[in-house]
C-alpha cells in the first residue's frame, strides 16, 4: 500500500490523467443531458491529449529546431512528435465537437429537449 502511494506520488501527471479520464467517462455515462455528455466526451479526449503531453515533457529541453550541423545531442531537445500528435488530436477533437453540436441542435429542433430520457420517451 505504501509502495503504491509512493509510486503514485512520483507520477502526479498520470494520476491527473486517470482522474480526468474517469471523470469524463462518468459524466458521459451518467448524465442524461446531451450537452453534458458532450462535455464528458471532451474531458475524456483532453485526458488522452494530457497523457501525450505528460510523457513527452522534458526538463530543460530546447525547441527542436536544429541549426548546427554534425552530431546532435538528442537529450537537449524536446521530442516534437508527441506534440505533433497532440495538435492533430486537437483538430480531430474540434471536428468531433462540430459534428456533435450539429446533431444535438438537430435533436433539439425536433424534440424541443436536450434530456435523453425525455427524448427517448417521445421516440416511443
Amino acid at each position: 500500500m505504501v509502495e503504491l502511494l509512493q509510486t503514485l506520488w512520483q507520477r502526479p501527471n498520470f494520476v491527473v490523467f486517470v482522474i480526468l479520464f474517469l471523470w469524463g467517462f462518468y459524466i458521459m455515462a451518467a448524465h442524461p443531458n446531451f450537452v453534458k455528455k458532450l462535455i464528458g466526451l471532451y474531458i475524456v479526449q483532453t485526458s488522452a491529449i494530457f497523457f501525450l503531453v505528460a510523457f513527452s515533457a522534458k526538463d530543460g529541453a530546447a525547441v527542436p529546431i536544429i541549426i548546427s550541423e554534425g552530431v546532435v545531442d538528442a537529450a537537449a531537445y524536446a521530442n516534437p512528435l508527441p506534440h505533433v500528435l497532440t495538435v492533430t488530436a486537437i483538430v480531430v477533437q474540434v471536428a468531433t465537437l462540430g459534428v456533435s453540436l450539429a446533431l444535438v441542435s438537430s435533436i433539439y429542433r425536433k424534440y424541443r429537449s436536450l434530456d435523453e430520457d425525455e427524448v427517448m420517451e417521445q421516440l416511443e
Binding site: 458532450l38 475524456v44 480531430v92 424534440y111 427517448m120
Partner: peptide
C-alpha cells in the same frame, strides 16, 4: 429527427473508441 438521436449515440461511443485507440498509440 429520430436518426440524429441514434447518430449522436453512435458519435459518443465512436469518439470514445477513437480516444481509447489514441491512448493505446501513445
Amino acid at each position: 429527427g429520430k436518426a440524429s438521436v441514434f447518430a449522436f449515440r453512435y458519435l459518443l461511443l465512436g469518439s470514445f473508441g477513437a480516444t481509447l485507440y489514441l491512448l493505446g498509440v501513445a
